[in-house]
Each structure stands twice: as structure tokens, then as C-alpha cells.
Nucleic acid binder design. Structure first.
Lengths: 196, 196
DNA sequence: GCCAATAAGTCAACATGACTGACATAACGT
DNA sequence: ACGTTATGTCAGTCATGTTGACTTATTGGC
């Protein structure tokens, strides 16, 4: 693993980032390492999204579609309102992509059992196939990245990402991720795995 | 530091991520931890951008403006072609925001000394003030995130982010970051710090 | 000095994904 | 029956990305 941010022989994530050369070589406003982080985050996010983007393009979809597919896949039976809450976009923004996904039957809507006003969202087999493909390519990139790092990097990476989330969003994200890891999908009677 | 992705008492990034409970609790297609990473990356990027977005809004600017300001700030004397190469957008996309920034004199253009076709980009004092403000708030968030983690997390985080970058972009990003950390700004005669 | 190549700017047109505010419909619950 | 809620929809706007074609200024080789 190459530490691009510290020049000297800083063997295998030894010292935090306090190698005399790397630290504040340029001495501009904040710490140079933090500025590197800022830029790396930008480029990393670009890397994070580029693989799925390529695939989505072939379907005439964009990132917005991807996000919908992803969260419905991980949370079958999700309500529209919940999805809006996760994505933090407006009804209209969601409606546009959701309509497309429903029309092309990547996503299936089903009225709630208890409350028939709700439109529970599920992936069709077709939708699940596409979403799995997207997840896999993205997971592969992350896996590859973590493999370049030392042991324990995955936990640090996850904790770092979590700590980057706006404070107000953290409880929600934490709950969301926990629930997807085998817990109940945020509600009661929607535990039918997929394809209603 | 709270490890939201592994339930048990996994003291201070001990075992990678192999705690029996956390690992593959749900057993959907890929590793559940990797899926958590995917979502965390999305939410983290949202957190990463939300602070600057708020400030930029007050100036009638968006993220595109921010990126231009940032890279010009870190690389004074940058050529338009180089900026296009960094941002990987089209001339037209850049022209729109750049024109605005020049018109409102956040950015100053100066013909190159050697080659007068080039328009070297510099920040005005006003532009530098804004950009510093944006950098500081973003650096603060990263600093805060890293502070929540253990020692050495910063190096791991940077290396993780770097490893997430598309392979083809890595040399460029590495060169860019290195040059900003006190090196020469990609060319010869453009080392006048700022404000020509 | 001519001319091809280069750096940059510009124009017209378009797509995506975000936003707003207002309004419609259906179902729930008191 | 009526107010609230969940959802859908309409009309219009904005920011940011795209394409392709074209202009202008300047450079460097011949």
C-alpha cells in the first residue's frame, strides 16, 4: 500500500501522519493533509460512482435511479415517504425517477396491508438483477481498495465515513444500516423478502 | 469512537471486521459490511458537501464554482486546459461557472508569460477569502471525523480514499496532491503565489 | 511571412436531477 | 362527515452536465 500523502518511509500506517516531511510542507491555511483529504474525497467519490454510471447509462438511467433501486433493494417494502426521508430530495424529484422505474417494471408498487394509502416499494426480478450488478461492481471497488490497505482498515474506513456524516443524519443512517443488516425493515408487516 | 457496523465489543479497531455478529448477518449478495460502506460513502459525501453548499448559496454559487475556486486556490496560475483535465468536465461547463467567477472578480485571468494564448488563473483576495472559508469548514469536518477515530486513522482514511479513485486517475491525482504540498504547480513560470 | 496547430472563448441546443408551490385523489381515523 | 395523511401530479425554474460547430489570438515550424 502506497501512502501518497507522506513521502518518507512511513511503513504500514505507523505514525498517524506526523512524518516531518509530509506535515505542512506547504503551510497554507489549514493542515495540508486535510486539504489532501478534501481533494481525495472528491476524486474518490468520482471513482465510487463511475462504474455504476457506466452500467446505468445502458439502461437510460442515472444516479438518481441507482439510489432508488439500491435503497428499495436493501429495504423491500419501503414506503415512498421513507425513501424521501432517506434521499432528502423532494417528492417531485423522486416521482420522476420512480415513475420511470415503475413504468419499466424495475420496481413494483403494492398498497400497504394495514394502510392501503401507502405504496410499498419492491424490486422486480429484473430490478433486483440490475441492482445486484450495480452493488457488486461497487462492492468490488471498495473491497479492492480495502485490500490495498492493512488489516483493520475496513473498520476504520467505515467509522471514518460515518463520522463524516452530518450529525443530524447519523441516527437515521445508523438505524438504516442496522436494519438492513438483518433487522426489521423499519416497519411491521413488510417482511416479505421481495417480489410480492 | 463508535463502530456502528459491528455490534459486539470490538475494542478500538481490534479485529478487521470479523466479529461473528456483524459479519454477514443478513447474507444478501455481497458482504453486508461492503454494502454498509456503499451507503456510508453516499451519506458521507453528502455530509462532506453540505457545509460549503450553505455558504456558497449566499453567493449564488454552487458546487461547480467551489471546485474551480478550490483547485485554482491550491494551484495558482493553473491553465484552463489543466483545470478541465482535473475536473473532467467540458469546456462549456467550465466556461459558465468560470465566467461568473471572473465577472464577479473572484478569479483573475492573466495571459501566460511564455505563451500568451494561455489564460493563467489566480484567485483575487476576495476569492481567496471565500475559498479559505470553504476549505476551513470542510477541513474542520474532516478533522472532527478523524478525531473521533483512533490514532493513525488519518493515514488509513487518506489511503482508503486514494484507493477508491479509478486506476487511470490515480497518477494524476497523486501528482496534483504532491505538487500542492509545496511542489511546483505543474509548470514553469507560474510560481508567483497569488494575485499577479 | 505563411500556415497548421494550439489555447481559449463562444453559441445553440439538449438532458438530468434538483427545486417550488399548488392542487388532486384516495384512504384513514375520530 | 370531516380533517389528516400518503401519494401522485402539474407547471415552471435552476444548476450542472453534455455535444458539435465555430471564432480568435497566438505560437512555432517551414
Amino acid at each position: 500500500m502506497t501512502d501518497i500523502t507522506s513521502e518518507g518511509p512511513s511503513e504500514h500506517r505507523g505514525v498517524p501522519g506526523q512524518s516531518p516531511l509530509a506535515q505542512d510542507a506547504g503551510r497554507r491555511s489549514p493542515n495540508a493533509d486535510l486539504i489532501a483529504c478534501i481533494e481525495l474525497f472528491y476524486f474518490a467519490y468520482r471513482g465510487f460512482t463511475c462504474d455504476p454510471d457506466t452500467i446505468l447509462e445502458q439502461y437510460g438511467f442515472g444516479r438518481a435511479h441507482h439510489r432508488v433501486l439500491h435503497f428499495v433493494h436493501r429495504n423491500p417494502g419501503l414506503k415512498v415517504a421513507e425513501l424521501l426521508d432517506i434521499l432528502q430530495i423532494t417528492k417531485q424529484s423522486l416521482a420522476r425517477v420512480l415513475k420511470q422505474l415503475v413504468d419499466e417494471s424495475f420496481i413494483i408498487q403494492k398498497a400497504g396491508n394495514e394502510d392501503r394509502r401507502e405504496r410499498r416499494l419492491y424490486l422486480s426480478a429484473k430490478g433486483a438483477r440490475l441492482t445486484d450488478k450495480l452493488t457488486q461492481i461497487q462492492a468490488k471497488r471498495i473491497e479492492g481498495a480495502l485490500a490495498e490497505l492493512g488489516q483493520g482498515a475496513d473498520v476504520v474506513a467505515r467509522n471514518f465515513l460515518f463520522a463524516m456524516i452530518a450529525e443530524k443524519d447519523r441516527p437515521q443512517v445508523e438505524a438504516l444500516i442496522r436494519s438492513e443488516h438483518g433487522g426489521l425493515p423499519a416497519d411491521e408487516s413488510n417482511c416479505n423478502p421481495r417480489e410480492p
